[in-house]
């Protein structure tokens, strides 16, 4: 075996150890510090300061003003409609989303891949297009001879559309990972299909289902573009909070808009925290 005679590659010049040389570790830490600083500035400019401004504006006229703005008849009605619809939609998705995920994971039929891809469409579709699309099928002039326009059911359908992917996409990966051995063991012990599902599969899916339902709820509470068209924006009847806020902005009542917005954000925050706590408690129980 020949001795490998490596060609003369000039050695890198050695840096003399001087007092001014910054140790490598400190340099790395400075880089991270700068990065963190930039990220914080970016977040502040775009997200934090603007949101803080909303909260600040809402408390501009004191607590009195805040509650008056939130409790004006149309705003309050909208809040009730928004929250009730959001809860309803979350519950429907809890069931249907799980069913759809189940079919996508466990069933086989031609065109399944296409269906699977289409589930994400509400994520990608502009909300105004979703609104248009739903008005076409469920508004006046609908080929199905249904007219949900100017009705709360129209709002409900629009919200179902935009929240479709949430539970499906959180449950699907869990189902995929789920070891079917457990179900087979249950069957061998005499448990029927539904019992097995209820006692074995469902508990394992619960965290994902709840997480998805929470996402669906927050999305439904915030929705604007898709409900706008089909609801016809009838005050006290089919207006959702986002639309009321929009109206306030258009009539230059930014303080009122801010108050309702802050209230809405607070609710979303509370729900998210509550869900997180529930998840954590469930996780601890294993």
């Amino acid at each position: 075996m020949t001795v490998v005679k490596a060609p003369e590659i000039p050695r890198q010049q050695r840096q003399p150890e001087t007092r001014r040389e910054v140790p490598a570790r400190a340099r790395a830490r400075a880089g991270t510090g700068v990065g963190l600083g930039v990220a914080v500035v970016y977040l502040s400019i775009i997200v934090l300061i603007p949101l803080a401004a909303v909260v600040a504006k809402s408390t501009d006229g004191g607590a009195d003003f805040f509650w008056r703005a939130v409790r004006t008849p149309d705003a309050w009605a909208a809040l009730k409609l928004t929250l009730i619809s959001a809860v309803a939609v979350a519950l429907v998705n809890l069931v249907m989303g799980t069913v759809i995920a189940w079919v996508l994971v466990r069933d086989q039929f031609p065109g399944k891949a296409v269906v699977d891809t289409l589930i994400d469409l509400p994520f990608a579709l502009p909300t105004i297009v979703a609104g248009l699309v739903l008005v076409a099928l469920y508004g006046s002039g609908s080929p199905l001879h249904i007219d949900l326009a100017y009705a709360r059911s129209g709002v409900f359908v629009a919200l179902l559309f935009v929240t479709l992917p949430f539970v499906v996409r959180t449950v699907q990966p869990v189902l995929l990972e789920l070891d079917q051995d457990m179900e087979q063991a249950a069957h061998s012990l005499g448990a029927g299909g539904w019992t097995t599902f209820r006692r074995i599969v469902l508990p394992n899916l619960m965290p994902a289902m709840i997480s998805g339902a929470g996402l669906a709820f927050t999305r439904a509470v915030a929705e604007f573009g898709s409900v706008n068209l089909i609801s016809g924006n009838l005050p006290m009847k089919t207006q959702v909070s986002a639309v009321v806020i929009y109206g306030r902005i258009e009539s230059d009542d930014t303080a009122g808009a801010a108050a309702i917005s802050t209230f809405l954000l607070a609710i979303a925050l509370i729900v998210l925290i509550a869900l997180e706590l529930v998840q954590r408690r469930a996780a601890r129980r294993g």
Partner: peptide, 24 residues
């Protein structure tokens, strides 16, 4: 890794504070 105490000398040069890139 950087030691809490002590030195590392490679080919006669104190490399303790040098980055991996500089150490050959």
């Amino acid at each position: 890794e950087v030691p809490d105490r002590g030195t590392v000398v490679i080919s006669g040069v104190d490399s303790t504070r040098m980055s991996p890139q500089q150490r050959q």
